[in-house]
Design a binder for these strands. Structure first.
Lengths: 340, 340
DNA sequence: CTTGGCACTCGGGCGCCACGAGTGCCAGGG
DNA sequence: CCCTGGCACTCGTGGCGCCCGAGTGCCAAG
C-alpha cells in the first residue's frame, strides 16, 4: 500500500513547513527527506492529499501547506512526544526549585513555560474546589471589623474583611475560630458550605447576628473564589510570528487578555498526563482561529488541580511543544505535592 | 517677541503629529491651526526650531517630526493636564468599586488603566516597607511544621512554611504568637527586624532552636518580600503602534516582561500627585528608547505607597495620558485608604 | 519681519518585464 | 499497476525606471 508513503509525505510537509515557514514543493521534499522516489511521484501523492483536504496551495504555482485537518492528522497519528534535552530538564528544576510560595510557583511556571516553548504560556491557579481547608483564621481589626483568612491545602490564602453589626469580643472570636476550624479543617471546600451552616447554633442569641455575617462571608468567599484565576506570560513571543497571524497579532493578544477566554481556552479537566491539542478553528473563538492551544492538567498524584498550556500559531512544533508542556506539568505537580 | 509663536508652532507640530502619525508640513500647519501667518513664515520658525533641536525631518523633502527634546519642552511648558470626561470618571469608579481584596484592586487597576489610556499599564503593589504589621498568625501544620502568615495594614498577606528542628507544642506556639504580635503589631515592617530579635530571650533553652528558626524566617520574609511586585496589562495596545517602534515591538515587550525592568521603569518615589514623564532615552534602557513612561505615586493620604503608570510610544497624547494616570492614582489611593 | 515665487530634492507608487519555482498531465517503461 | 521523465503552463516575486507631488531653502520685494 502507498497509504504509508502518503502519510510520510504529509509528515515531511508538516515538518518542513514548520521549520521554514515556506510552502514546500515536491523537489525540495525528495531532497531533504530520503524518500526513495522521484518528485513526480510525490506530486501525485500531494494531489491525493490535497483532494482529501490535508494540504493546500496558497497560489496555483506554489508549494503545499498543511491545512488544519493536516495538522490534526499529524498530531493524531504521526507526531510523538519529543523528550526534552537534559539541559532543558535541568533548567526546569533549577528554575522552579527557588519558589517560596504558591504565587511564586505559578509566576515561575508561566515564565518557564514561555521560555522553553518560546510561545505564550497560560497557567491556571490550582482549583480551590478540589482542595481542602487547612486552617481558618479570624483576626480582629477593630471592635466590629474582622478579617477572615482561609488557608488551603494547596497553599492558597484567601482573605476577606467583614463588618459586623455589633462589636465582637476576643472571647467570642476565639470560640468561633475554634468551632469553624473544627467544622471545616480537612474538608473539601465544596462540602464546607453545609458544615458551616450549623456552627451558628451554638452561640448566644446576642452574638448570632455577627456570627452569621462572618459565616456567610466565609461561605461566599469559598464559593466565589473557586472562580479560577489564570496568569499569562511570554506574550513577547507572539510577535515572533508576525505574519503567521493573518489579521496581525492584535486580536490574539486582546483575546488572551480576557480572563474568561483564557479559562475556556485551557478546556475541561481530563485525565492526568493527557495532553489536549486544539488546532485553529477547534477553539471556538474567531480571534484565535489561526492559533493552536496545547494544554494538560497538572496536580499532585492522580488528582488534577488545574491546567496549564501554551498558545501559538497553527504552524507549531507540536512534538516539541507537547513534550515541554508535559514535562513542566509533571514538575509542577510534584512540587505542589511535596511543598506546602 | 516671536518666541511665543515659535512655541505655538511646536505645540501645533506635536499635536498634529500625535494625531496623524505623519510628518507635518508648513502648509498643513497654517490650515489646521489658525496661526495668522503664511507657510513661508512658519518655515522660518521651523528652521529655528530644527536648529535648536526640537524638531527634525525624516528625509530632506518631508515634513517635521518632534524630537525627544521637542516632546520634553512640550510636556514641560506647553502641555496641561486634560481632565477626564464624566463618562470616564464614572467608568473608573464603577470598575474599581467591585474589588474584593488587594489582589483584585491591583488587577482591576491595571486593566482599567490600560483601557482608559489605551496603552500598556504598569502597577506596583503597595510597598511592604512602608506599611505596618496588622497581625501575625502561626499555624501548626504538623508537629514540627509551622505556617507563618503576616497580614499588613495595606491588606497584603504573606505566608511561609517553616520546618522546625524539634516538635512545637500548641502552648509554645500560642506563647510565641502572643509575644511576636506584641512586639510587632502596629510597627513598620522596616523597624520590625530589631524588635523581633529580643523575643527569643523569654523562652526555655529547649525551645530556643525552634523559636529562632521561626523568628529568622519571619524577619527574612519581611525583608525579602519588600522586593516589590509589579503587574502589567494591556500589552495588546502595543501592537496598535506597530510602526512607532523602529525595531518592532518585540524588544519592548521583552523588556516589559522583566520584573526588574518594570520596577526601575516606574522610578523613585516622588511627592504625591507629582507626575513623572520619561521620554525616549530618558529611560536608561536601550530597548525602551522609543518609548515614554508616564508614572505617578499613589497611596493613602500624603503617604506614597507605590507607583503606577503607562508605557507608550514617544509619540503619545501626553496631556490625556497624564490626566488619566493621575485620576486613576487618586481613585486607587482613596480606595486603599478606606477599605481594608 | 513677513511674504510670494521659484528651483531643487527625494521618497513612494506604478507599470513593466523576466525569472524561476512549482504544478498537472501524458506517454513510456518496469 | 505504479513510477518516472518530459513538457507546457501559471503566477508570484523582485528588479528597474519613471513620474509625481509634497515639502523645503533661499531670495528679493513689500
Amino acid at each position: 500500500m502507498h497509504e504509508d508513503r502518503r502519510l510520510e509525505v504529509l509528515r515531511a510537509i508538516v515538518e518542513d513547513y514548520v521549520a521554514t515557514n515556506e510552502p514546500v514543493g515536491s523537489r525540495a521534499l525528495v531532497e531533504r527527506h530520503h524518500l526513495g522516489v522521484s518528485p513526480a511521484t510525490i506530486r501525485n501523492d500531494m494531489a491525493v492529499l490535497e483532494e482529501e483536504g490535508y494540504i493546500a496551495q496558497p497560489h496555483t504555482s506554489a508549494g503545499r501547506v498543511p491545512t488544519e485537518l493536516g495538522y490534526r492528522l499529524f498530531v493524531d497519528r504521526l507526531a510523538g512526544v519529543k523528550p526534552l534535552s537534559p539541559a532543558e530538564r535541568r533548567a526546569i528544576s533549577v528554575f522552579l526549585e527557588g519558589a517560596v510560595d504558591l504565587d511564586d510557583v505559578i509566576a515561575r511556571t508561566v515564565r518557564l513555560l514561555a521560555q522553553v516553548t518560546r510561545q505564550v504560556a497560560v497557567v491556571q491557579y490550582p482549583s480551590l474546589t478540589r482542595s481542602a481547608v487547612r486552617h481558618i483564621e479570624l483576626v480582629r481589626l477593630t471592635p466590629s471589623r474582622v478579617m477572615l483568612v482561609v488557608i488551603t491545602t494547596t497553599g492558597r490564602v484567601e482573605q476577606r474583611v467583614v463588618d459586623c453589626p455589633a462589636p465582637v469580643g476576643e472571647d467570642l472570636l476565639a470560640d468561633l475560630r475554634g468551632r469553624v476550624n473544627a467544622a471545616t479543617v480537612g474538608r473539601r471546600l465544596t462540602e464546607v458550605g453545609d458544615q458551616v451552616a450549623s456552627v451558628a447554633d451554638g452561640f448566644a442569641p446576642d452574638d448570632r447576628p455577627s456570627v452569621l455575617v462572618v459565616l456567610s462571608t466565609l461561605v461566599e468567599s469559598l464559593v466565589e473564589q473557586s472562580e479560577e484565576r489564570v496568569v499569562l506570560g511570554g506574550t513577547a513571543n507572539l510577535t515572533r510570528f508576525g505574519q503567521d497571524f493573518p489579521r496581525s497579532v492584535q486580536p490574539v493578544l486582546e483575546a488572551l487578555e480576557e480572563q474568561v477566554v483564557l479559562m475556556r481556552l485551557l478546556g475541561e479537566a481530563t485525565a492526568p498526563e493527557r495532553v489536549t491539542v486544539r488546532i485553529g478553528h477547534e477553539n471556538r473563538l474567531e480571534q484565535l482561529s489561526a492559533a493552536s492551544v496545547v494544554s494538560v492538567g497538572y496536580g499532585s498524584g492522580d488528582e488534577v488541580l488545574a491546567r496549564l498550556g501554551v498558545v501559538g500559531p497553527t504552524r507549531m512544533d507540536y512534538p516539541g511543544t507537547i513534550g515541554a508542556v508535559l514535562a513542566v506539568a509533571r514538575y509542577v505537580g510534584r512540587l505542589l505535592a511535596e511543598s506546602p
